[in-house]
Amino acid sequence: MKIQNIEFVGLRTPLPSPAVFSWGTAEERNVGLVRVVLSDGTEGWGETSVTFPLWSLEERAATVRGIAPLAVGSRLESTDDIARIASELIRSTNRLRLLWSATGISAAIGAIEMALWDAWGRVQGRPVWEILGGADTDIPLYAVGFGGSPAEVADTATGLLEGGYAAVKIRAGFDPEADVALIDAVSAVAGDRLYVDVNMGWTRLQASEMIPRLNPFGLGWLEEPLSRDDREGLRALRDLAEMPLAAGENCYSESELVALAESRLVEVLMPDLARVGGLGAAIAGARAARANNQGYSTHHYASDIGFAAMATMCAVVGNPRPILRDVSPWPIRSELLSEPLRIEHGVARPYAGAGLAPAPQPHIIEEHRVL
């Protein structure tokens, strides 16, 4: 059996209300999918990370179309072939990664690799987590994607925690006084079940000023306080922070993710399958974290195709910290799939059908497709 075709499918939908991050505001959201078709007609679907900027959808479409010919025609007869194809794509694009965009290329390869796993699971008639020796297990979730005044956010957090979510996460990296006021309000109801994500929004100086102010809140973790490449700055913060630090979602290669785990600069490693290069790279990073006595929490901020892949990874590696569940109003997240995922009362279980995730619904793709 061979890979017959690789196609990029780009969707875009308006948001009911803008999503605000320390690096910008999004009024629309993208979904970047890759469809692989095998020579026997089997399809597999993967997802890439195209949240922001909005034009990343066009960039990723061009990247997937550019590298797809390197994989089309390749043999797919075992799980080893998936790893081989992904490795060949990485090796074949090494110079291009240096000349242009390592991030976009890794994210494109990750979507292709996920689609290959999905297709292989369908060929075998088994869930991918089962093929990889994983277990059908409960996966705790934390909720993110809700806003309002500090009092409103605290009320929403209370409801989510009472509804079964293991934790809640809010975003910071804006005005320092507003950040502290929000954290104060939510920590009063969440305690150490509150995670704070700065989205790389602080300089070293800002972080050194803010962390002592946040230490008394006893946060569950502080996420991405600095730029992804500032390891020395992170090392300095490690001595300053009394709360666990989390990072890794913006690692764009297996080697970078594993190196972060082995540095022991964070207590929680956060692999993002749609960015780091796919399921295999994310599993390697999570296993490196566990080998270095760290926790891991997979990251995915897009549709439920990628979420299902994230749950598969957790079923294979086992014992994750709570993982991200976006609860913001965005109907396509779940409507895209032909059947709902197993998520109830703040707990997920891996997809029980063949492949990585339920197949997307053609009419939803048709309604929102822009590329």
Results as ranks from 00 to 15, higher is better:
Val72Gly: 11
Ser101Pro: 05
Ser74Asp: 08
Ser106Arg: 08
Met114Gln: 15
Ser106Ile: 07
Leu76Ile: 15
Ala102Asn: 12
Leu76His: 06
Gly73Val: 14
Ser78Val: 11
Ile90Val: 15
Leu76Ser: 04
Trp100Phe: 15
Ser106Tyr: 08
Ala86Asn: 09
Ser78Phe: 08
Leu96Arg: 00
Leu89Gln: 02
Ser74Ala: 14
Leu99Lys: 12
Ile85Pro: 02
Thr93Ala: 02
Trp100Ile: 14
Trp100Lys: 10
Asp80Met: 07
Leu116Val: 03
Glu77Val: 05
Met114His: 07
Arg95Met: 12
Ile85Thr: 05
Ala102Met: 04
Ala111Thr: 05
Ile90Ser: 08
Ile82Lys: 01
Ile105Cys: 05
Glu88Lys: 10
Ile90Glu: 15
Leu76Asp: 01
Ser101Trp: 04
Arg97His: 11
Arg97Gln: 15
Ile109Glu: 01
Thr103Pro: 01
Asp81Gly: 03
Leu89Arg: 00
Thr103Gln: 13
Ala86Gln: 10
Leu76Gln: 07
Ala102Phe: 00
Ser87Lys: 07
Asn94Glu: 14
Ser74Val: 00
Ser92Ala: 15
Leu98Trp: 12
Gly110Ser: 13
Arg95Tyr: 12
Leu116Gln: 00
Thr79Glu: 13
Arg95Glu: 09
Met114Lys: 02
Asp81Glu: 04
Ser78Ile: 07
Leu76Met: 14
Ser78Asn: 09
Gly110Val: 02
Asp81Asn: 11
Thr103Glu: 10
Trp100Val: 13
Ala83Leu: 13
Leu89Gly: 04
Asp80Ser: 13
Thr103Val: 14
Glu77Asn: 09
Ile105Gly: 00
Ser101Ala: 09
Ser92Cys: 13
Asn94Tyr: 09
Gly73Leu: 11
Asp81Ala: 02
Ser74Asn: 08
Glu77Met: 06
Ala102His: 12
Leu96Thr: 02
Leu98Pro: 01
Arg91Val: 08
Thr93Asn: 06
Ala115Asp: 07
Arg84Gln: 11
Arg91Pro: 03
Thr79Cys: 12
Arg84Tyr: 09
Glu88Met: 07
Ala86Cys: 11
Leu96Val: 08
Leu116Ser: 09
Ala107Cys: 12
Ile112Val: 13
Ile109Cys: 07
Ser78Cys: 11
Glu113His: 11
Thr79Lys: 06
Arg84Phe: 07
Ile82Glu: 00
Ser74Arg: 14
Ala107Leu: 05
Ile105Phe: 03
Arg97Gly: 03
Ser78Tyr: 05
Thr103Lys: 09
Gly73Cys: 08
Ala111Arg: 03
Ser87Phe: 01
Leu116Glu: 00
Leu98Asn: 11
Ser74Trp: 03
Glu77Arg: 10
Ile82Trp: 00
Ala115Pro: 02
Ala115Gly: 12
Thr79His: 02
Glu77Phe: 09
Arg75Ser: 15
Ile109Leu: 07
Leu76Glu: 09
Ala111Tyr: 14
Ile105Tyr: 02
Arg75His: 11
Ser87Val: 03
Ile109Lys: 05
Leu99Thr: 10
Glu113Tyr: 05
Arg95Lys: 10
Ile85Cys: 05
Asn94Phe: 14
Ile85Arg: 05
Leu96Asn: 01
Gly110Thr: 10
Asp81Trp: 04
Glu77Thr: 11
Ser92Asp: 14
Asp80Pro: 00
Ala115Gln: 05
Leu116Trp: 06
Leu96Trp: 06
Val72Thr: 15
Asn94Arg: 15
Met114Ser: 09
Thr79Tyr: 02
Ala115Arg: 04
